[in-house]
Design a protein around this nucleic acid. Sequence first.
DNA 1: GGTAGATAGTTGCGTACGAAATCAAATCTC
DNA 2: GAGATTTGATTTCGTACGCAACTATCTACC
Lengths: 159, 159
Amino acid sequence: MSSQDRCCDPVSLASLLVESAVGLKRLAGPSFEQAHDLPHQSFDLLVHLARSPGRRLRMSDLAAQCSLTPSGLTRAVDRLSEAGLVARDSCAEDRRGAFASLTPLGAERMERALGSHSSRLQEIIAEALDQPEQELLMALLGRLRDRLHPEVAPTTPSG
Amino acid sequence: MSSQDRCCDPVSLASLLVESAVGLKRLAGPSFEQAHDLPHQSFDLLVHLARSPGRRLRMSDLAAQCSLTPSGLTRAVDRLSEAGLVARDSCAEDRRGAFASLTPLGAERMERALGSHSSRLQEIIAEALDQPEQELLMALLGRLRDRLHPEVAPTTPSG
DNA sequence: GGTAGATAGTTGCGTACGAAATCAAATCTC
DNA sequence: GAGATTTGATTTCGTACGCAACTATCTACC
């Protein structure tokens, strides 16, 4: 904590990242769950699947995209699979591997949920930042993330 | 899904926040623990104490600053207290309340750890963003955080 | 073509956390 | 000043997660 880097202290930056992420989750999570009968906690996972070609991804790719370890992802997919939102498809070219795919139920729920959740988030964020600022923030975060987390680059769904 | 498309989707912004926070933790955490024999997980808690006047804070204030629920904070302080890094001081003016305070051991460990950890983080972040960009990012995140999480404003330890 | 090593995913185990219930002390109301 | 409400912190309970060990399959190399 020296005098000159106080305004740009990387420790504070790390704190801000966590606080913003958690704060957003706390503000948007409960209403989301209530409105859509989906676990907000694995919303991120479902979004990544919904946006992937064929609505499916290899387990390891999905893990990387969701900031989960393989172990954590296995469990998350178990839960969503139990809920009927996600299925495991076996992978023909590599029999060790598996795809996680959105079920029709999962896809339909996400389709209904995404728009309103997105608006809700936008509404919250817009109280703090105007449109150009949001774009700037996303660009900066994107560069940071790409550096920290290069594995997230889009991966071939190959199948 | 890299940083340039979907340039202003709030769902992606939320993901980026999480990915950046987790990515930073994963890159910096292990080396930190090894170097300083401190739990990286509660590093944020210790930093907030170290930066507070008198190196102490009321439990509830500390919880807010650390993005923890009261319940989570109680446990975290238990652990650090067990490790001798933090102590609970009872509060004279409100006998329900308690302060968490850095012990001399905790303060000394933090003093040694902060500088090098800060450099390590800086080094990682600098690979993605130059100095003005970092400042910009912090400013934007700060505004977002303040909106999401207004309780974090520094509170007087009044003791 | 058989063994060595790498890789994809899962499981056992321990831990950190949040929600809700609880307890204790402060504050408000009459 | 007694009782109701609120507030600060803790505890109980359930859950999500990471690490490390494991299994199964694929790849390399001889």
